[in-house]
């Protein structure tokens, strides 16, 4: 078994003379969350449509769990879950009827389906509204149901196309948490968004897409490095703490670039804060000093996008 759930090679979509997706390459490992980050019209949905076999690529191909998007759409469809950007639900039917219908379309049935529906309703926190018509739901509730539909048949790879657009903070929280839960359970996720905070929170890997081209991709740390900046950590101690001595010790750590004491504060610059934080904490613990708080300032993906395109992610 290949450890890649998805491998796209030179995937391309032309509409007449206009190239909406200009031959993109990327890979998703099993159990990973890959975020496709890009502004409006970048080609995110077009890419997802090709990967879901809803649009024929003009050129290139992608292998999903070993099945070619071009040559074996049915193989692909059986392993993917598709959560479209625009809600695709039947407003006049209840949540339960929607799930039942879409489950049947995914080839499920019987007690298996019933059990799965209850499970998912629980998961998207709609159990108590299950027998109400979707038209009575809030935007956030509809979004959550829209996601549940895509998860019915326990796909190996799920495509979520901007699943948090225009919803309340609680629903958004639930959705983001759910993505992480799914990843922890071994599902792979391709997540598109134009919110860099979401990409930062969720992703193992990020692809930045603009005007149909993948202009950068990698782990978040790798991307930030392209900007050439380092993370800044501000460690706050008690007034009495021997910060000068402590900063010297910290400065000798392998991953630390600089460490400067500044009254009760030590400012540390590192290539990647998350990687050194445990070590920093153990050093301070060895010295019997208590860190009261830590601020981490890192170059974010917004900065990366700005750096690469000279434009802000959202106008």
């Amino acid at each position: 078994m290949n450890e890649l759930i998805l491998k796209s090679t030179q995937l391309k979509k032309r509409y007449g003379d206009f190239e909406a997706v200009k031959g993109i390459d990327f890979e998703i490992g099993r159990g990973q969350v890959f975020s496709l980050l890009g502004p409006n019209g970048a080609g995110k949905s077009t890419t997802i449509s090709m990967l879901s076999c809803l649009l024929k690529p003009s050129d290139g191909d992608a292998l999903i769990d070993g099945h070619s998007v071009v040559n074996n759409p049915n193989g692909v469809k059986s392993v993917i879950g598709y959560v479209p950007q625009d809600l695709a639900l039947y407003d006049k039917l209840t949540a339960k009827h929607n799930l039942k219908f879409w489950g049947t379309m995914a080839g499920m049935g019987g007690p298996d389906l019933t059990k799965r529906i209850d499970e998912l309703l629980e998961r998207v926190e709609l159990t108590d509204r299950a027998s109400e018509r979707v038209e009575t739901f809030s935007g956030g509730m509809k979004r959550r149901l829209n996601i549940a539909v895509g998860l019915l048949h326990k796909p190996k790879l799920v495509f979520m196309d901007e699943p948090t657009v225009g919803i309340d903070p609680q629903s958004r929280r639930r959705i983001l948490d759910m993505v992480k839960e799914l990843r922890d359970e071994g599902m792979s996720v391709l997540y598109t968004t134009h919110y860099m905070e979401e990409a930062e929170e969720l992703s193992d890997f990020v692809g930045i897409i603009d005007h149909g081209s993948m202009i950068a991709q990698g782990t978040q740390a790798e991307l930030r490095r392209t900007v050439g900046e380092q993370d800044t950590l501000r460690l706050h101690f008690d007034e009495s703490a021997p910060t000068a001595a402590l900063s010297e010790k910290i400065g000798q750590l392998e991953f630390v670039t600089t460490a400067t004491a500044n009254e009760s504060e030590i400012v540390v610059t590192v290539p990647e804060a998350a990687a050194v934080l445990p070590e920093l904490m153990s050093v301070t613990a060895e010295e019997n000093q208590r860190v009261r708080s830590i601020d981490i300032e890192e170059p974010n993906l917004e900065a990366v996008f700005l750096h690469l395109t000279g434009r802000a992610l959202r106008e």
Binding site: S49, P84, L87, Y90, M105, H153
Partner: peptide
């Protein structure tokens, strides 16, 4: 228009 057709097509139907 509603996208439910596309969603049906995205299942192996």
């Amino acid at each position: 228009i509603d996208g439910t057709l596309a969603r049906m097509q995205a299942t192996a139907t």
